[in-house]
C-alpha cells in the first residue's frame, strides 16, 4: 500500500526523482542524499560489473554522483531520471576506460574469442543451475569489451542500437560480441561445474 504524503499527492514515482533533482539543483544536499540513497546501488553495481574491481567501482560511483550534483540542474525530466543517470554512469565508465588507455577491445567480428562449437555426436552437457555468484564471477572473467556489451545488454537492458552508439560500433558487432560473451559465460559456468564434479569424484 502506498501512502504518499504532503504536497504532491498522487504524483507518480518519476516525479519524485524530478522533485528531488530540482531541490538538489537549488542546493539542497538532503534532497540529493535521498537521490543517492535511491540510486547508488544500481550505479555502483553497474560500475562494479563493468570494471570488475570494487575499489575502482566505488571511486567511479563517487565521480558519477559528484558529476550528477553539478549537472543536476540540466535534468529537465524529459526522460526518466534513472535512464538519465545510468547513461551518465555508462559514459563515465567508458571515459574511465579511455583515460586509462584501455581500449574497449571491440575487435572486428573475428575477434579473439573463439566460440566452441558443439556438434551432434557430443553428449549434450547441460549447464548447471545459474547461481548469481558463479554468474558474476564468469562475467568478471570476460575480456573487457565483451563484458561491456554483455553487461549493457543482458544486465542493464540496453538495446543494440544504443550500445552501438555509445561504443561507436555497428549493431552487428554489438550482436556478435554479445553472442560470444554469452557462449563464453556458458562455457565458464559449465567448466566450473565439471571442475566441481571432478573434485567430488
Amino acid at each position: 500500500m502506498q501512502y504518499l504524503a504532503a504536497v504532491a499527492i498522487e504524483t507518480p514515482r518519476v516525479e519524485t526523482d524530478l522533485d528531488l533533482a530540482r531541490a538538489s539543483a537549488a542546493g539542497d544536499t538532503a534532497a540529493f542524499e535521498q537521490l543517492y540513497r535511491q540510486h547508488h546501488r544500481r550505479v555502483f553495481s553497474l560500475c562494479l560489473r563493468m570494471l570488475g574491481n570494487p575499489t575502482e567501482a566505488e571511486d567511479l560511483t563517487q565521480d558519477v554522483f559528484v558529476q550528477l550534483f553539478r549537472k543536476i540542474g540540466s535534468f529537465r525530466g524529459e526522460s526518466a531520471f534513472t535512464t538519465w543517470l545510468h547513461r551518465m554512469t555508462v559514459n563515465q565508465v567508458l571515459m574511465h576506460f579511455r583515460k586509462r588507455n584501455v581500449r574497449p577491445e571491440l575487435t572486428t567480428d573475428d575477434g579473439e574469442l573463439p566460440v566452441t562449437i558443439e556438434v551432434g555426436t557430443d553428449k549434450p552437457s547441460r549447464m548447471p543451475i545459474v547461481d548469481h555468484i558463479a554468474l558474476e564471477r564468469a562475467i568478471g572473467e570476460l575480456p573487457k569489451g565483451y563484458r561491456t556489451v554483455f553487461v549493457l545488454h543482458d544486465v542493464e537492458g540496453y538495446e543494440h542500437e544504443e550500445i552501438g552508439r555509445m561504443l561507436g560500433v555497428t549493431v552487428g558487432t554489438s550482436k556478435s560480441q554479445l553472442h560470444k560473451a554469452r557462449m563464453r559465460i556458458r562455457t565458464l559456468l559449465d567448466k566450473k561445474s565439471s571442475d566441481n564434479r571432478e573434485v567430488q569424484a
Binding site: 546501488r41 570494487p54 566505488e58 545459474v130 554468474l135 554469452r182 556458458r186
Partner: peptide
Amino acid sequence: IRDDLARLIAASANLPLHTP
C-alpha cells in the same frame, strides 16, 4: 545450448544489486 542461454539471459537480468 538454447535452453542454457535462455536461463543465462534470465539470470543476468535479475542479478542482485551490490552495495558500496
